[in-house]
Simulated scan of single mutants.
Amino acid sequence: MTTAQAVRAMLLLMPRLVGRAKRMPIPAALRGLDLAPRHLALLAYLQYEGPLTVSQLADRLEVAPTTISLMVGDLSRHGVLTREEDDADRRRRIVAIAPDFAAAIAEWLSGNASAWTEVLAALTPAERATIVATMRAYEAVLEKHAGT
């Protein structure tokens, strides 16, 4: 496959992937919360890595801590997240998924996680690393071009 053929294939594939991801049904417990893709990423980190501080979430999502604080505040007001003092440093807050929403969030994330698991399990570790590196590089180049 030539580079031009691969580019064409990706240009046709990406909108379908995004469209399918957007059509994944939001569990009833989360409907009406006006969740955006940024919320999904934040919830995914908390789901798969467990409770984190605002700073840790900001580092992982590569956004300012104030942005995370606003998102966490909004989701906390809806009862989706909890914020508790860090016993090691009382100035910090540990953010976690509220128990009442844990099952709904796991359900929402499971469709994408299952699909990725099925696809990536069939690959070698090197092939998986190449896919992840390629997606990160694509994101970085898009960001670079968005700034020009």
Rank of each mutant, 00 (worst) to 15 (best):
M1S: 11
T2M: 04
T2G: 15
A4P: 01
Q5H: 08
M10K: 03
L11K: 05
L13F: 08
P15K: 03
R16P: 01
L17W: 11
V18Q: 03
G19K: 08
R23S: 12
M24D: 02
I26N: 01
P27G: 02
A28H: 07
L30N: 01
G32M: 04
D34C: 07
D34T: 07
L35P: 02
P37K: 05
L40S: 10
L42Y: 02
L42A: 10
L42T: 06
L43Y: 05
L46R: 02
Y48R: 15
G50V: 15
P51T: 11
L52W: 10
S55V: 15
S55D: 13
D59N: 12
R60T: 00
L61A: 02
E62K: 12
E62I: 10
V63E: 05
A64K: 13
P65H: 09
I68L: 02
V72L: 07
V72M: 03
G73D: 06
S76M: 03
R77E: 13
G79K: 00
L81R: 00
T82A: 01
R83H: 00
E85S: 11
D86Y: 05
D87I: 10
R90T: 14
R92H: 10
I94S: 01
I94G: 00
A96L: 06
D100C: 10
D100A: 15
D100Y: 04
A104Q: 12
I105Q: 01
E107P: 02
E107A: 13
W108N: 05
S110Y: 00
N112A: 07
N112C: 09
A113C: 06
S114C: 04
A115D: 05
W116H: 05
T117V: 09
V119C: 06
V119R: 12
L120H: 06
A122D: 11
V132H: 04
A133E: 06
A133M: 03
T134A: 13
A137D: 14
E139D: 15
E143L: 10
